[in-house]
Amino acid sequence: MKILRAIVQELIGMFVDDESLALFAVILIAAVAAAVKLLGVPALPASLFLLAGCLAILARSVHRAAR
């Protein structure tokens, strides 16, 4: 049971370390996906926005940790 719990914690920890980084990344991806699928925004500009957004989220997370 302990090992099972450790595996679950390891699985979650693989994707979530800084909670706000993970949360903002998920919100960004959801917003981009919604823009493409629901609003008909072209996928390429949306993907480039995703790239820029990921980098901005990374910079913000590093800034918070380094303060």
Binding site: M14, F15, V16, D17, D18, L21, A22, A25, V26, I29, C54, I57, L58, S61, V62, A65, A66
Partner: peptide, 17 residues
């Protein structure tokens, strides 16, 4: 792709820090 963004950015953030 979504999982790799979360996984990769976590590694990248740690490596930068």
């Amino acid at each position: 792709g979504v999982l790799l963004i979360l996984f990769g950015m976590r590694w990248l953030r740690k490596a930068i820090l």
